[in-house]
């Protein structure tokens, strides 16, 4: 049973609410353009779109401070963008240009930004979890009150890395916020076909980690849950597990013919889409006019257009620099 669309009051002022809406629009418009550029062969390799899941990154990352760290997955365009990685640098990275945020060495799956404390862009499922535990350990040992937010999909919860990292984080009371974006499919394998225990909070809870779920299609629910969780982690109460129940509207990657799910299911989930449901709620509360929505959307599209032009014009990394940054220069 798919839940009804998110509804209810938005407990934020107009300015903050529109800021989050704008971020969701930026992700949506950027990724729609990415799909188009993939068709035009400007972007190659794997491209995993986040369309439909925007409320997760936007709600969650707005609950963090600039000192906190983010460890993400290969479906991380949205997280990078919300975290403040410039759209120009993201787009240039997907084009494989040296102005990209990983100098063209990472591509779509490996966006990094040290200044934003954005630690990727990890394309080994579950690979980011031990990393996050270690970042949090470093904070603990150095007496810093920071949160490391580790974003991963429900597919990662079948990996040993999940169990080992949950155990370590709980055992050592590390300040990690485990943020599972449960979009119901690990590539094409439905949760029930890959996990004996489909209650993800029960799995996390078995390590003594407080676990909670939130509607990942509702930016309000995500943000409020994440804010409370981050507060608890920052106060030194140990790790926290947050399950964001969401849905991917597009294919897993550009190579996916989507044989594993019904079109009707996708259509039903689209009715819960994070952007139009949130916009409708804001309009109902008088916090958004149609004119304001169109202006935000136009601004998002203008940013995307500028990013594409920037990426097009950017230089290729010289081949002489191929071996640069394998190890430190001697």
């Amino acid at each position: 049973m798919i839940a009804p669309p998110p509804s209810g009051p938005v407990p934020w002022d107009k300015h903050f609410a529109q800021e989050l809406l704008f971020d969701m629009l930026r992700i949506r418009r950027m990724e729609e353009k990415c799909a188009e550029l993939y068709g035009a062969q400007k972007i190659r390799g794997f491209l995993h779109l986040y369309i439909g899941e925007e409320a997760c990154a936007v709600g969650a990352l707005h609950a963090l401070t600039p000192e906190d760290a983010i460890v993400a997955t290969y479906r991380e365009h949205g997280h990078a963008l919300v975290r403040g990685v410039p759209m120009n640098a993201i787009m240039a990275e997907m084009f494989g240009k040296s102005a990209g945020c990983s100098r063209g060495r990472g591509g779509s799956m490996h966006l990094f930004d040290a200044a934003a404390r954005f630690y990727g862009g990890n394309a080994i499922v579950g690979g980011g979890l031990p990393l996050a535990a270690g970042l949090a350990l470093a904070d603990r040992m150095q007496g810093r009150q920071r949160v490391t937010a580790c974003v991963f999909g429900e597919g990662a919860m079948a990996e040993g890395a999940f169990h080992e990292s949950m155990n370590l984080a709980a055992l050592w009371r590390l300040p990690v916020l485990f943020c599972c974006e449960n979009n119901l499919y690990a590539m094409g394998t439905a949760l029930g076909r890959s996990e004996s225990q489909t209650d993800l909070c029960a799995k996390a809870g078995s390590y003594g980690v407080p676990a909670q779920k939130a509607d990942g299609m509702d930016v309000v629910a995500v943000h409020e849950a994440m804010k409370a969780a981050a507060h608890q982690v920052r106060e030194g109460l140990g790790p926290f597990f947050l399950e964001l129940q969401t849905y991917r509207f597009r294919a897993h990657s550009m190579f996916d013919p989507e044989l594993y799910r019904d079109k009707a299911e996708v259509e039903q989930w689209k009715r819960r889409g994070p952007i139009h449901t949130f916009s409708a709620r804001l309009k109902a509360e008088g916090k958004l006019t149609e004119g304001e929505f169109l202006a935000l959307d136009a601004r998002a599209n203008a940013q995307v257009q500028a990013a594409v032009e920037f990426a097009e014009a950017a230089a290729w990394e010289p081949v002489e620099d191929l071996l640069r940054d394998v190890v430190a220069p001697t």
Binding site: G134, L137, A138, L168
Partner: peptide, 22 residues
Amino acid sequence: TPLSELGFVGAGIGAALGGMRP
């Protein structure tokens, strides 16, 4: 550490990124 080679070596990488010298 627990018997978690993947976990604690990965955590070592994270700690190194976080400014430690594990």
